[in-house]
Simulated assay, not measured.
Amino acid sequence: MSHTRYTTTILEDWVTSFYLKIKIRTPDDISEDYIAKQNEIYIKRANIPSRYDVIGSFRSITIDIRKDKLLQREIFFHELCHILRHSGRQGMIPEAFRQLQEWDSCNFVRYAAIPNHMLHFIDFNEPFVIEQMVKMFKVTPELCTERLMQIEKRRNLQKFTRSFTINFLKI
């Protein structure tokens, strides 16, 4: 797989815009502490389940330190999405709306961990591309695999759509 442009999602564009606004341009710039500081979010690392809290203007993310270090980073992005993009207490909103927020957070994790505007740092022809991505973006191999599959799937869909449109127009 080579890195070629594909049509990004609205959420992907949102993440890129968010990162560029706070001057995150390279994989080394992605730092939970920096992102939290730029957004006035307190981070607590403790032996308790991960969560986010918004109480008035106070915003915090608790990260369970019993989890693997790479997974902790993904948990941070998940909880960050809830703070930045969602409203309401999850325990008090309709189940369908809660599921929508969880779906949004899962997608946000992929884009925040391995943002579109940083894909050019990845050597897609490298035989150990997953290991390269794990080291570069400091996330789990599973998330790297998901992101690569998502990129490839979208590129293939885009090729199919172009081909279909061209053939349809010939009719």
Rank of each mutant, 00 (worst) to 15 (best):
F121V: 07
K67W: 07
A46V: 14
E152K: 05
Y6K: 01
E126Y: 14
D13N: 13
K37W: 00
T16E: 15
S17A: 12
V129S: 03
R45A: 08
R5K: 14
V54M: 06
F18L: 11
T145V: 11
F168W: 11
M133Q: 04
Q150Y: 08
K21A: 05
Q72L: 10
E40V: 10
N167S: 09
I22H: 03
V139F: 09
F137Q: 00
F97N: 10
I83F: 02
L119K: 02
K44D: 13
R59M: 10
F168E: 12
H78E: 00
Q38K: 11
D123Y: 04
K153W: 06
P141W: 03
T161F: 14
V109H: 03
S17V: 12
Y34V: 02
E12S: 11
L119R: 07
F164Q: 13
H117I: 01
I35G: 02
T145H: 08
Q99N: 12
A96P: 05
Y6V: 00
C81F: 02
R110C: 15
F160R: 07
T4M: 10
R98M: 15
K170F: 05
N167D: 03
I63N: 01
V109L: 02
Q132L: 09
R25D: 05
P127N: 02
S163I: 14
C81E: 02
Y111L: 03
P94E: 13
V15N: 02
F108L: 07
M118S: 01
G56S: 07
I75A: 05
N39L: 08
G88L: 11
N125E: 09
R85G: 01
E12W: 06
V54C: 08
T9V: 06
S50H: 06
L143S: 08
D68H: 01
E126T: 08
F168D: 14
F58C: 05
D13H: 08
R98S: 14
R162I: 15
I130Y: 07
T161V: 15
V129C: 05
R25S: 05
K159F: 14
Y42F: 14
R73M: 11
A113T: 01
M1K: 04
T4D: 07
Y42W: 09
N156E: 15
Y42I: 13
E12T: 04
S57K: 14
W103T: 10
I55R: 08
F160A: 14
I48H: 09
S50V: 05
Q158E: 15
D104T: 00
K23Q: 09
F76M: 00
I171G: 11
G91C: 11
L11T: 00
T145W: 09
L84F: 03
